[in-house]
């Protein structure tokens, strides 16, 4: 497998972002009004893009199994509604999840947060071992965290090297690189880390672990989408995007889709290239879909907790 080499001039560090105008652009996206058939379409699309996630210390096999069943059929009486894109679990639960989801190639992908999630503060060798194990247990996708400390200290080569090695350990699995933007401090850093991760081999870039606030703000999202756009226009390589953490309601989710459509275009409007890392979002999407379908506003109790 091709391993990209570290560019000594660190081109990602030249990326420049103007915060005020990023905020202005996002504010404008938030004024988009999503109505009627557009709303139906985007709610379903959003549902199909969710990485239904559970990443708790109290996770059990039973909980993960329930999550997988919900991913396959989010609302029991609506078998025709889309399944979610994936489930996302700790490495220890990959094998159990795989059993519920069925063999590789089914409608719901299996993602796992390997690499010492969420801090990433374990030796690289053990992190790589974790990745290999998760892939061996049936993971389609690996969500890794970067070493934010190394990035902020300017040890870009270390961050780059870890991504390269993790990517190699993934084999055929797709690699999502979590920047943990809430710890990067500036949008310039988000822009730089996005480009670094892409050059090092990320298939997806992802905002957050969900353990740190702020998580997936639209502002960091726009900056990351712009990095993806630049990459595609320059090289033709398509990179995926995954905001994770803090997206709990349909309205912001739909505005995310507007942002994607207006920044990257229709090629990204699919679960292959865009995901929401979320848990409670699914129920709100279902609730809005029921509202559209039945004309009544359902109680949240209609939807299972997991």
């Amino acid at each position: 497998m091709h391993r990209p080499s570290f560019p000594n001039d660190r081109p990602w560090r030249r990326a420049r972002v103007d915060n005020a105008m990023v905020a202005a652009r996002c504010a404008r996206v938030r004024t988009r009004s999503i109505k009627t058939e557009t709303k139906d379409h985007l709610l379903r699309l959003a549902l199909s893009m969710v990485d239904l996630t559970t990443l708790e210390g109290v996770d059990t096999t039973e909980r993960v199994e329930a999550l997988c069943r919900k991913a396959l059929r989010p609302l029991s009486d609506r078998p025709d509604w889309p399944s979610t894109a994936a489930v996302c679990v700790y490495p220890n639960h990959v094998a159990a999840a795989r059993r519920v989801l069925g063999p590789v190639g089914g409608p719901v992908k299996l993602a796992s947060v390997a690499t010492g999630f969420p801090a990433g503060q374990t030796p690289l060798a053990t992190r790589l071992r974790e990745v290999e194990q998760a892939v061996a247990d049936g993971a389609d996708e690996i969500d890794m965290v970067i070493d934010r400390g190394a990035f902020l200290a300017g040890r870009d080569a270390d961050v780059f090297h870890e991504i390269v090695e993790t990517k190699a350990a993934c084999g055929a699995a797709r690699l999502k690189v979590i920047l943990e933007t809430g710890e990067l401090g500036t949008l310039d850093n988000v822009a730089a880390a996005s480009r670094l991760a892409i050059l090092a081999g990320a298939d997806f870039i992802k905002t957050s672990t969900g353990k740190i606030q702020p998580a997936a703000t639209m502002e960091v999202g726009l900056v990351m989408l712009e990095a993806i756009r630049e990459t595609y226009l320059a090289t033709g390589v398509q990179i995926g995007m995954k905001p994770a953490g803090g997206i709990r309601a349909s309205k912001p989710a739909l505005h995310w889709l507007v942002l994607v459509a207006e920044t990257l275009g229709s090629d990204w409007m699919s679960p292959t290239w865009f995901r929401f890392g979320a848990s409670s979002l699914v129920n709100d999407l279902l609730r809005q879909l029921v509202r559209r379908d039945e004309g009544i506003y359902p109680s949240p109790r209609r939807f299972s907790v997991d």
Binding site: R32, S33, I34, K35, T36, E37, T38, K39, H41, R229, Y232, L233, A234, T235, G236, L257, V258, A261, E262, L264, G265, S266, D267, M269
Partner: peptide
Amino acid sequence: HELRLSGALDLAP
């Protein structure tokens, strides 16, 4: 490698 922006988002009135 051009983006397909037109038609990416059909917004209902």
